[in-house]
């Protein structure tokens, strides 16, 4: 993107250096990504991208040459192509920004991304997870069913708002849900990342992969420690320095065994 792009006045976040880094990291990790999806039968794997913005990463993941209407330069990534899509994962893409959602919808129609579902939402708040049943029971609502099965995610991709901002900018992002929401991360730029970490504690399938982009100021090692306590083994798989910032992409692998072990450790700590 040229210098003309303004991250304060544009309607949504345009593909930028961090977008490229995330796509490169996914490309470098393709073997693992494919193995994870192929471990499940056709139609049984779920890929979610949070904060899809203009949809460059989603397009790279979900596009198939068979049907794409995007110009070749826009479709340069075509990451998974028919190789992965032949096992037809279900894709879900979200954003809080209405302008971004409209752009995603336009791309979905143009490129015929038929197995992609778009949901305007804040992180994974919309996703029916096991705690739904518990929360509903607590609310005493008779019309709620108890969730016997919940749909676990196999792959979760997130390029979060990671820029450290003051409270005013962060509040603007939360209230306006405009382009500020694509970059304003509050204290240490980590406030949305920390909510994300909290929300994904029990939504991933065993062996599921989480790809998270972070900036050094977000304190990635500390985030990785929090993730570890929820059963995620993290590894930094790609870094790039742009200007004064160093961006990194982390891959976290979920293990329910590790998760239970961590909970036991916490039980022990609590009982002391």
């Amino acid at each position: 993107m040229g210098d003309s792009v303004s991250y304060e006045t544009a309607e949504f976040y345009p593909p930028s250096e961090d977008t490229d880094l995330l796509i490169d990291a996914l490309r470098a990790d393709l073997a693992r990504l494919r193995a994870t999806c192929r471990a499940r039968p056709v139609g049984a794997s779920v890929i979610v991208e949070l904060g899809s913005g203009s949809g460059a990463v989603l397009h790279a993941l979900a596009c198939t040459q068979r049907t794409c209407g995007a110009p070749p330069d826009e479709c340069r990534a075509r990451l998974l192509d028919d190789e992965l899509t032949q096992c037809r994962p279900l894709f879900f893409a979200t954003d809080v920004n209405s302008a971004a959602m409209a752009k995603l919808r336009e791309m979905q129609c143009r490129c015929q991304l038929t197995d992609v579902e778009l949901v305007q939402a804040d992180l994974l708040e919309f996703w029916a997870a096991p705690q739904s049943a518990v929360a509903s029971a607590g609310a005493g609502s008779a019309s709620c069913v108890s969730l016997e099965r919940h749909v676990q995610l196999d792959v979760l991709v997130f390029n979060p708002p990671y820029v450290a901002t003051d409270q005013q900018e962060f509040a603007h992002a939360l209230e306006q849900r405009d382009i500020y929401a694509s970059w304003a991360g509050g204290e240490n730029g980590a406030q949305v990342i920390l909510r994300f970490v909290q929300q994904i504690a029990n939504v991933m399938a065993d062996g599921g992969l989480v790809y998270l982009l972070m900036l050094d100021v977000n304190r990635p090692l500390q985030i990785a420690e929090l993730m570890k306590a929820n059963g995620f083994q993290g590894e930094c798989i790609e870094t790039r320095t742009t200007g004064i910032e160093r961006l990194s992409v982390w891959r976290f692998t979920y293990s329910s065994v590790e998760s239970n072990a961590s909970h036991s450790t916490r039980e022990i700590l609590r009982s002391r």
């Binding site: 708040e125 029916a128 997870a129 739904s132 509903s136």
Partner: peptide, 8 residues
């Protein structure tokens, strides 16, 4: 589910 209450 409902984003606020997680009701379903």
């Amino acid at each position: 589910c409902s984003p606020r209450t997680k009701a379903y």
